[in-house]
């Protein structure tokens, strides 16, 4: 949003939980995109909390149709606008959660990337199927207890690592891919702008803590997003034109904090022992080495 404009593009009064990371992300992203934007949204928390008839939080034209197809619907809009002689100045965006991006929406997303539609896809990642009640998804991190990967006598909770969505996206050789969080607002705005300005498909993967699903204090959402970056759990980077081998780390913590600081604020990790935490720390250390810090 330019400084002169004071109209919020994401209206208040929506039904998100207190402390929802998605709300912070959406306000930032839509204000950056501005009014000349058409959006699609996948079924999920964002959709149900912002579009209950006859109200809407969206000050831009929006279409919701199903769970797995935000990117395909956006493809149709983008092509139709081009075909019908519009000037091409309208931003086309698709929004989905991690379920609607990593899992059920992945085929549609990959198709949209491959066909090179000028669409910016925003993934609001809260690391599980939160709208249906905290079920695990391929974005759920190792060790998290969810309702379908509960911690128990014979279970550590989720037992597989998080799917590297942004890297897979960059491997499509699309013009722009970035990771962002709700704690790094300037960085998020800059990345959304770059994505919208890219000549072709773009992805911004936004880390958005969920107090309800992660079981942390609702005033800790931003702090957790910051800690995720400072511990190396979530790495901030961008890649242009699929230069995945040469991705640009956009925020390098000066000194990485121990992962326990991040994990211990969330009850989804409350069952982890010091040994588990050590194992997770080791994996993060290896990952950060790969990323070069």
């Amino acid at each position: 949003m330019s400084e002169k404009e004071d109209k919020e593009m994401f209206a208040s009064g929506h039904r998100m939980c207190a402390g929802c990371g998605e709300g912070i992300a959406m306000r930032t992203i839509l204000n950056e995109a501005g009014p000349n934007t058409i959006a699609t949204v996948a079924t999920g928390c964002l959709e149900v909390t912002t579009t209950a008839y006859p109200q809407t939080s969206w000050e831009i034209p929006l279409i919701h149709s199903a769970f797995e197809n935000a990117a395909s619907v956006a493809s149709g809009i983008e092509v139709a606008l081009k075909q019908m002689d519009k000037k091409g100045e309208t931003n086309i965006m698709s929004f989905a959660g991690d379920g609607g991006t990593f899992d059920i929406g992945f085929q549609a997303l990959s198709g949209m990337f491959e066909r090179k539609h000028n669409v910016t896809h925003i993934c609001l990642d809260n690391e599980a199927y939160m709208n249906t009640g905290i079920q695990r998804c391929s974005s759920t991190p190792y060790g998290a207890s969810t309702t379908t990967s509960p911690a128990g006598k014979f279970s550590i909770g989720e037992d597989r690592p998080k799917k590297p969505l942004a890297r897979i996206s960059a491997a499509h050789d699309i013009p722009y891919v970035a990771t962002a969080t709700i704690a790094h607002i300037k960085d998020l705005k800059k990345k959304v702008r770059k994505a919208l300005d890219a000549d072709g498909p773009a992805l911004v993967h936004v880390f958005a803590p969920c107090p309800t699903g992660w079981r942390h204090a609702s005033n800790d959402s931003v702090e957790l997003a910051r800690l995720a970056v400072e511990t190396g759990v979530f790495v901030l980077w961008e890649a242009e034109d699929g230069e995945i081998c040469d991705l640009n780390i956009t925020h390098k913590p000066k000194e990485r904090k121990p992962v326990g600081e991040y994990l211990k604020k969330q009850r989804r990790f409350a069952h982890l022992t010091e040994e588990h935490i050590e194992k997770i720390q080791k994996e993060i250390d290896e990952k950060c080495e790969q990323y070069g810090f």
């Binding site: 493809s75 809009i77 092509v79 139709a80 085929q107 549609a108 198709g111």
Partner: peptide, 27 residues
């Protein structure tokens, strides 16, 4: 004078029809 979208599935075919039709395209 039209645009084809060579989608990756029939689900996306109908989804793209819905997107295009919702901005007023004959689809």
């Amino acid at each position: 004078d039209a645009s084809m979208i060579r989608v990756e599935s029939e689900h996306s075919a109908m989804s793209a029809c819905i997107g295009a039709s919702s901005i007023g395209a004959r689809t």
